[in-house]
Lab assay of single mutants.
Amino acid sequence: DETGKELVLVLYDYQEKSPREVTIKKGDILTLLNSTNKDWWKIEVNDRQGFVPAAYLKKLD
């Protein structure tokens, strides 16, 4: 059920640097789980959840 889920576009590649982070690729469109922290957003990638720098993402309307 995708209702109410926010999507984000990945602006730059990011390689995870800790187990709490996930790797993302430029151009991916992913589900945003939590954006309350202005610097690190929690997203879902391939059934994995983790954090990436918010500056690497853009919210889609």
Rank of each mutant, 00 (worst) to 15 (best):
P53R: 03
D61K: 14
V52M: 01
I24R: 00
D39Q: 11
L30C: 12
D28H: 08
E6P: 12
D13S: 10
V52N: 01
D1N: 14
G4A: 15
A54F: 02
L57C: 07
L57K: 01
E6A: 13
V8K: 00
D1T: 15
S18C: 08
K5D: 09
I43D: 00
I43M: 01
I24P: 00
N46Q: 15
V8R: 01
S18F: 07
Q49T: 12
K5T: 11
N37R: 09
A54G: 05
L9Q: 07
S18N: 13
G4M: 13
V22D: 01
G50N: 02
D61V: 12
Q15T: 14
Q15M: 12
G50S: 04
L9A: 05
E2A: 13
I29R: 05
V10I: 03
K58Q: 13
D28Y: 07
N37Q: 11
K58S: 11
L57W: 01
L57P: 01
D61N: 15
T3S: 14
Y12I: 08
L32D: 00
N37K: 07
N37H: 12
K5F: 12
L60S: 04
D13E: 05
P19L: 09
Y56T: 10
A54E: 03
I29E: 03
T31L: 14
K26N: 05
V45W: 09
S35H: 08
V8D: 00
N37M: 09
R48Y: 06
N34T: 07
G27K: 02
W41T: 02
D47C: 10
A54I: 04
D47P: 03
T36K: 12
N46S: 12
K26L: 05
D1W: 14
G50H: 06
P19A: 12
Y12P: 00
E2L: 12
E44Y: 05
Y14P: 01
V22W: 04
K5P: 13
L11K: 05
A55H: 14
F51G: 01
L30V: 15
K58T: 12
E2G: 15
L7I: 08
I24L: 05
G27F: 04
T36S: 14
L32C: 09
L33T: 05
F51P: 00
R20E: 10
K17L: 08
L9R: 07
A55T: 13
E16F: 07
K59R: 13
N37A: 09
I43E: 00
L32N: 01
R20H: 13
Q49W: 08
G27N: 06
L9Y: 10
R48M: 07
G4T: 13
